[in-house]
């Protein structure tokens, strides 16, 4: 039986993970209460939750090299954590190796896939992930990779095929909503409903889904509602960089001074993509500007 299926042992912890309730994943589930065969997946999920919360060092130190050698899952987790801590070419090539040797392992697929995708090797990542055996996590990751490459068509195809075997699974809904925010039009509202349901349910609320809700509202031009949701997210996780980044966008849109938010973002995530991107764009602006030679004096 699939341990992730509705009756399986892992369903609750997995759902919590998907909903972004990482603290709950770490604290509310005791590894010992699960059957032996599920120990590893639980561990992996918990480690991943740690990673999601940014405690990379904890993960790295907890997994000994011996464990890593023994279990490809743990090896992948360790690699994952160290890559997220500090992206390096070495980690990427290790991930490639691991993918080659243990390509059938789901954790390897997911974690190495993520590393590859982050390292601009999206095609490899998709190839690796395509080996999955009906894993929605893999599907969701594939969808995201397609979207990040602006291939909404492929993402849609992927989500559709997933829906055909997983029906109304949470991840499928989420994946479709991610696509929806990209597609726009009526799909904004549809996506909003999914995110809102998650974000506003007391048992499912998390900063991640609140931010997602806010983003969908931003796209529909509902700035006030978006702000409420973002503030909720920031109360839950004051240092959620994505939330702060979106706050920055929101402030810009409504014409509010952005310096404070920007400083805050800088303090939590110096390398956040919005900051990197904006810095790059400023440079681009300077280059573009340099083509003109204004004359100030007559």
């Amino acid at each position: 039986m699939d341990p992730f299926s509705a009756e399986g042992e892992l369903v609750n912890i997995h759902t919590a993970f998907v909903q972004g309730q990482y603290t709950s994943v770490i604290n509310d589930f005791e590894t010992s209460s699960f059957s032996e065969s599920n120990k590893i997946p639980i561990q992996v999920l918990q480690y991943r939750a740690h990673c999601a919360l940014g405690s990379y060092d904890e993960v790295i130190s907890q997994i000994s090299d011996k464990d890593a050698k023994k279990s490809p899952d743990l090896a992948a987790v360790k690699l994952f954590a160290s890559y997220l801590k500090k992206p390096s070419d070495k980690a990427v090539s290790e991930a490639e190796l691991l993918a080659e040797s243990q390509g059938d392992n789901l954790s390897v697929q997911l974690l190495c896939g993520t590393i590859l995708a982050r390292a601009e090797k999206q095609e490899q990542a998709v190839q690796l992930l395509a080996k999955h055996q009906g894993s929605l996590d893999a599907v969701a990751l594939i969808v995201q990779i397609h979207l990040s490459q602006n291939r909404t068509d492929l993402a849609l195809k992927e989500a559709k095929s997933a829906r055909s075997f997983a029906q109304d699974a949470l991840l499928v809904n989420l994946a479709e909503s991610w696509i929806g925010v990209r597609q726009g039009g009526d799909n904004y509202q549809k996506s909003f409903y999914v995110f809102e349901e998650l974000a506003q349910g007391p048992s499912s609320a998390s900063a991640t889904s609140l931010v997602a809700q806010a983003v969908s509202e931003l796209h529909m031009g509902r700035t006030e509602e978006a702000e409420t949701a973002l503030n909720q997210a920031l109360t839950l996780e004051p240092e959620n960089s994505t939330a702060i980044a979106n706050k920055l966008v929101l402030d810009t849109i409504i014409g509010r001074p952005v310096e404070e938010t920007r400083a805050k973002l800088q303090s939590v995530a110096k390398e956040h993509e919005i900051l990197v991107d904006i810095a790059a764009k400023r440079e681009a602006f300077q280059t573009a500007m340099a083509k003109y030679s204004p004359k100030f004096e007559a």
Partner: peptide, 20 residues
Amino acid sequence: SGSRTFLPANPGMPPLVNYV
């Protein structure tokens, strides 16, 4: 910067950039 939002998707992945 006012025309791009950041949608958190899979943990570990950078957020999805969407266009307002």
